[in-house]
Amino acid sequence: MRAETRSRRRWHIAIFLAPAVLVYTALMILPLFGTLKLSLYQQVDQQQVFVGLDNFRTLFGDPNWSESFWRALRNNTWFFFIHMAVQNPIGIAIAAMLSVPALRFKGFYRTAIFIPTILSFVIVGFAWKLILSPLWGIAPDLLKMVGLRHLFHPWLGKEEYALTTIALISVWQFVGIPMMLIYAALLSIPDEILEAGEIDGITGMKAFWKIKLPLILPSIGIISILTFVGNFNAFDLVYTMEGAMAAPNFSTEVMGTFLFRTFFGHQTQPGDPNMGATIAMMMFFIILTGVVIYLFLIQTRMRRYQF
């Protein structure tokens, strides 16, 4: 009897799990292995031939490839650095201001500041392209109003500014995410702790640095890893604003555009799924390294506070 109910129960489990596991395995896990496999093969005379690590050797050894790869990785690192240095501190600062109990119109600020985050890259990209365009002249006019007209450059068209400009636009778009997550973390700090600090004379800014900031460190860790994964996977904004060629002169190239162009090809070069897969695998290793560092080094060392 018991064995019977047990085996009957087992069937339910399988049926409950099956659809999710099937879809997930077919479209998430198997393609990752498929990509790994493709990266170890090459197209020779209409045939896929196993070549071991040759594609990776090409990627790092052939100056044409390796230059592009290191440029994409360098740009992507700078892209990530700007997010960490600008987006996350602004997000934390806004969240800290929003968490002041006496502040009014919180809901309005929160809703308004989150709006750019819900817009698509296409909207954000084109909107900023128009605003920064020297043809339309909104940006120069605004700078003129504060007497800084001479600072204006066609930022998106200059090699030395384009990547930073796009990174800052991306920051503008995604400030809402650290703001919300940190805001939630700040709300979950119990009043008793803050009151205890107040009795000891720790208030205002001091309370933020000495009490709140250490308590929200785990959330800052989560934001950092989310930013890392999102940035090393970025593509859409660069594609919308500068095209697949990462204009001007590849100066806005990130890993995503490099992968896209290699996979689909562009004017002079036909698409190459095998090299595309090789680049995707490198992106996989980079992201995996970041996630592993986060899980094993940062998260386990960070003290968790239980309230």
Binding site: L27, P31, L32, T35, V229, N233, V291
Partner: peptide, 24 residues
């Protein structure tokens, strides 16, 4: 183990498998 298997996708973006997804 099943829980962990299903959780891999939280951190690994599906875009990395694009080449193979298109073939599929």
């Amino acid at each position: 183990l099943m829980g962990l298997y299903l959780a891999i996708g939280i951190m690994i973006p599906i875009r990395l498998g694009t080449v193979a997804i298109l073939q599929f």
